[in-house]
Design a protein around this nucleic acid. Structure first.
Lengths: 215, 215
DNA sequence: TAGATTGTTAATCGATTAACAATC
DNA sequence: TAGATTGTTAATCGATTAACAATC
């Protein structure tokens, strides 16, 4: 039986469902209909039902969805029931900010190591993790079952470092460098291009201003 | 004449075009065809031509596109030829990281102020900007022509702060808090939900592992 | 059983790709 | 002029919404 590929449009919506269901669960809500959830989240009920049915039926006719059950199932779909070891490469401001962010741990993402090429930063402590030299990177990735590398380094070095990581068995790269990485397709890459995001905001500000000028 | 609305799918691709064209420009490339650009960026030439034609014709039959001209035009479309004053609310690790990021300035985004409710942080210096008390926020936004507020505060306070900002005339919010803001539609919001991004990565890692198990 | 609400099929809408006439 | 490549229309594909039969 052929497994149908789930579209990235659907995947992209799962974390938001997960967040709303987590909040409902914390509020003690036991069940919810696609209609009620759609009003809360400002999406169509149709889309909610279609999205969930990509993964099989989580609901029950006449009843709706059990909040806690659905929350847990979406968590499993997202792989949050597993542990993922990650390292951060680049101990600058952004790297340290991400290293200090505790909430990732709550979702099974375990901070294991941090690297930088700047000797002044090596040995510094970020939430109990000592910054290591880039020379130690390859060995560390191989020996510590590291799934995810977070890249918070300048774009000039990002492509080369990504290649090194791939050669040492990394599974996924969370890329904050402002460059497109060129890695084999079995390596998962998620880009966070902050300046792209800011430019979109800029576009929308200006579009709105131009509309105002015209009216 | 009715102005046709450009889809957010197209807008979302503009910063990436801008980045590639900037690099080509810096390399001294004078002109490029949609075909060549499509190979470089790994998108279809058809999409490139369609995207650009949303804004009128930037190219010339038989020649292609002039790199520098196209780069400048896309910059204008994105509003990067204007100055935008921004403040950061939340002087934690992430807020300080963004405050220290110089490249935003290069695109016309000017760092004007930083706020936090933690007395221990008030008065601290972030790239020449002193962290101010939240009590000073309303007045500062009103008097300093602030367009954009960057929210790097916990989700519990984000909704309230967003409302305050809107009341004091903010135009746009770059939201790093893990919550959906509820603001009037004329206020532009761009969400950066880091944990959502990490969850997508997690999904794709697990999907790939499951495929491997099956094979 | 009657009412509610899902799961799922069908219809619509929008975005992407292909094709080619226009034109530099 | 001939060749190259855009701008633009038409075709295709995929995603969203609507509708409703199945069923709890």
């Amino acid at each position: 039986m052929e497994e149908k590929e789930i579209s990235q449009a659907v995947i992209g919506r799962l974390p938001r469902y997960f967040r709303y269901l987590g909040e409902l669960k914390d509020e003690g809500v036991e069940r919810i209909s696609s209609q009620d959830l759609s009003e809360l989240m400002k999406v169509t009920a149709s889309q909610i039902r279609q999205d969930f049915n990509n993964f099989g039926g989580f609901g029950q006719q006449g009843y709706g969805y059990n909040v806690e059950y659905l929350y847990n199932e979406i968590g499993k779909i997202l792989g949050l029931d597993r542990k993922h070891n990650f390292i951060i490469i680049g101990a600058g401001n952004l790297g340290r900010a991400l290293g200090n962010y505790m909430n990732f741990e709550r979702r099974g993402f375990i901070f294991r190591g941090m690297f930088d090429q700047n000797p002044a930063l090596i040995g510094q402590d970020v939430r109990g993790i000592k910054v290591m030299s880039m020379e130690d990177l390859d060995k560390f990735v191989q020996e510590n079952d590291i799934d995810i590398a977070v890249l918070t380094i300048p774009k000039t070095s990002a492509v080369g470092v990504a290649e090194r990581l791939v050669n040492n068995g990394i599974r996924a790269i969370w890329n904050f460098a402002h460059v497109d990485l060129n890695v084999p397709e079995e390596i998962q890459v998620e880009n966070v291009h902050l300046s792209d995001s800011l430019m979109k905001l800029s576009y929308n500000i200006n579009r709105y201003m131009k509309e105002q000028e015209k009216a």
